[in-house]
């Protein structure tokens, strides 16, 4: 039986990933800021075959309580933690963060700084136990800064770079670090974005993340075609790119 930590367990993508673990009879610790939503997801995972479910309520921006979460993880799983997924995030309104410095800093805190802080705590735990898999949901938006969402993109880019370094550090300790880069996914985060055929289903994304964590993959684009798309986007020379309205 595997032990699993999901931070941001009320995210649609994270919940689909949790369902895959639950169906294998895993023991899960779910972390989110909204208790009622978290309980509804916990009940679902219990009915779907989870061996055990524990919940921990945390606003990720409450840095002072991060170590409390780590204590909860250690006491929930005295024999070790097999999988950890960091999934939460917010998609800020670009017009707002382009004009309001405090809002830009907040968006960066939620999507990058708090993630980096939590990963730093987790890295210590995994380094000690010398096994396990960490995965973090970044985004294709972190692959290149674009006028339409560069604050979110910068935060995700920071997470991608951070996890790249962490991956190399943890490789020596038999711990995998997977950077997940989804394209558009049909979830509450994109509720206001007009849908197009490129939108992926959160359940397909969840299945892919679960597989990537099991295999300990490095960088995973979901769906896979985004790797090619982002390759092309990154290859466009800056002097041309800056004129494109992307």
């Amino acid at each position: 039986m595997s032990t699993v930590l999901i931070i941001g367990a009320t995210s649609a993508i994270a919940h689909e990933t949790s369902r895959k673990f639950a169906s294998e009879g895993a023991d899960l610790l779910l972390v989110a800021r909204n208790g009622a939503k978290l309980q509804a997801n916990a009940d679902d995972l219990t009915a779907r075959g989870a061996y055990g479910i524990r919940t921990f309520i945390l606003d990720a921006n409450d840095f002072a309580r991060h170590s409390e979460l780590l204590d909860a993880v250690r006491s929930a799983f005295p024999d070790g933690l097999n999988y950890a997924l960091v999934a939460y995030g917010t998609l800020p309104d670009q017009a707002e963060v382009a004009a309001d410095a405090a809002a830009a800093a907040d968006a960066f805190t939620t999507n990058a700084t708090s993630v980096i802080a939590l990963l730093t705590h987790l890295a210590g735990l995994f380094e000690e136990q010398k096994h396990g898999a960490i995965a973090v949901i970044s985004s294709v938006a972190g692959d290149r800064g674009r006028p339409s969402n560069y604050v979110y993109g910068a935060a995700k880019g920071a997470v991608s770079l951070f996890t790249q370094g962490l991956r190399a550090r943890m490789a020596k300790h038999n711990v995998s670090v997977t950077t997940i880069k989804p394209g558009f996914v049909d979830t509450p985060m994109t509720a206001e974005v007009p849908k197009n055929p490129l939108f992926a289903d959160p359940s397909d994304v969840g299945v892919r993340i679960h597989k990537a964590m099991k295999k300990g993959q490095d960088i995973v684009y979901v769906p896979a075609f985004w790797r090619g798309v982002m390759g092309v986007i990154r290859a466009i020379p800056e002097r041309i790119f800056k004129r494109l309205d992307l």
Binding site: A191, P194, K195, N196
Partner: peptide, 9 residues
């Protein structure tokens, strides 16, 4: 989902 596109309709 706000305004539907032709694809989602």
């Amino acid at each position: 989902m706000g305004k539907p596109t032709a694809a989602s309709q």
